[in-house]
């Protein structure tokens, strides 16, 4: 019996571990830098200041090439912006609306309920502007790659001179985190690319960490509630388990 329970636990563990092992299989020689993210762990939470800075990096650096389809301006409330600030951010953009009474489409300033407009009208335009490569939408990117945030960070700081043995074609760049090491995205962050109002560091590492923090929130906006409910649920269920086990012992005491 004890053997059976042991095997049960083992099989549970390997069942849980298996897909992780399967999905980690990438290509080439890749370097993954591990960071201490504030959102990791059981009590993980987002750092609003870092996310606001990351959002600024996204707007000033990445938004020229990458869309964030699933993000509406109203979602920025999670970063700590108030309604007036969100309205002001949205108003910087024009979106198409209509038709009006005459049946015409027209442009108007964006409102908080609108999605953040994409830099390109469609994938073809995006490719045409990027040497044929398609910059992926970033709203879910932190969940769409194995080791999400650590990978994104490593990618952004992973640009290097290619080893002499490697031929890098035109329009491709050497990156030690990207699978195959050859990426079509030019190095986006060099350090001091943006100016922060709060005086935080603008080193390449700091900017990369901030934008990664922002992208993690974008992919998993409910992380904080999830973990909060999780702690309560696990606490409650542990007590439930102990109580039911004690009740079971008591009820079974007369069975021989």
């Amino acid at each position: 019996m004890r053997k059976f329970i042991f095997a049960t636990v083992m099989s549970l563990m390997s069942a849980v571990g298996m897909p992780g092992a399967a999905s980690a299989a990438g290509g080439g020689d890749v370097t993954l830098l591990k960071n201490d993210w504030s959102f990791a762990g059981i009590f993980g939470h987002y750092d609003k200041a870092s996310m606001q800075r990351g959002f600024q990096v996204y707007l000033e650096v990445c938004a020229g090439c990458h869309s964030m389809e699933y993000m509406a301006f109203r979602n920025l409330a999670d970063l700590g912006y108030n309604e007036a600030e969100i309205k002001a951010i949205a108003a910087e953009y024009e979106v198409q609306d209509g038709p009006d009474e005459d049946g015409e489409m027209f442009m108007r300033p964006a409102r908080p309920a609108d999605r953040i407009p994409s830099p390109y009208r469609n994938d073809n335009e995006a490719r045409a502007n990027n040497n044929g490569a398609l910059p992926p939408d970033l709203s879910l990117i932190a969940k769409a790659r194995a080791h999400g945030p650590d990978y994104l960070y490593s990618l952004l700081v992973g640009y290097q001179d290619a080893p002499a043995s490697m031929e890098v074609p035109d329009g491709m760049y050497y990156n030690n985190a990207y699978s195959g090491n050859m990426i079509a995205m030019p190095q986006p962050i060099y350090g001091d690319d943006v100016e922060y109002a709060d005086g935080a560091s603008t080193s390449a590492e700091a900017l990369s960490a901030d934008v990664t923090h922002f992208l993690m929130w974008a992919a998993e906006p409910k992380l904080e509630v999830r973990k909060r409910i999780g702690v309560a649920a696990v606490f409650f269920l542990s007590i439930f388990l102990i109580m039911s086990y004690l009740a079971k012992r008591r009820i079974w005491a007369d069975v021989h």
């Binding site: 849980v16 897909p19 999830r226 999780g230 696990v234 269920l237 439930f240 388990l241 039911s244």
Partner: peptide, 23 residues
């Protein structure tokens, strides 16, 4: 059931995507 729900809660609330594929 208590044991099952406890393990399920740990997965749902702390590792919700561990058994899925990022792709």
């Amino acid at each position: 059931i208590a044991m099952f729900l406890l393990l399920l809660a740990i997965a749902v609330f702390f590792f919700p995507n561990a058994m899925g594929h990022p792709d």
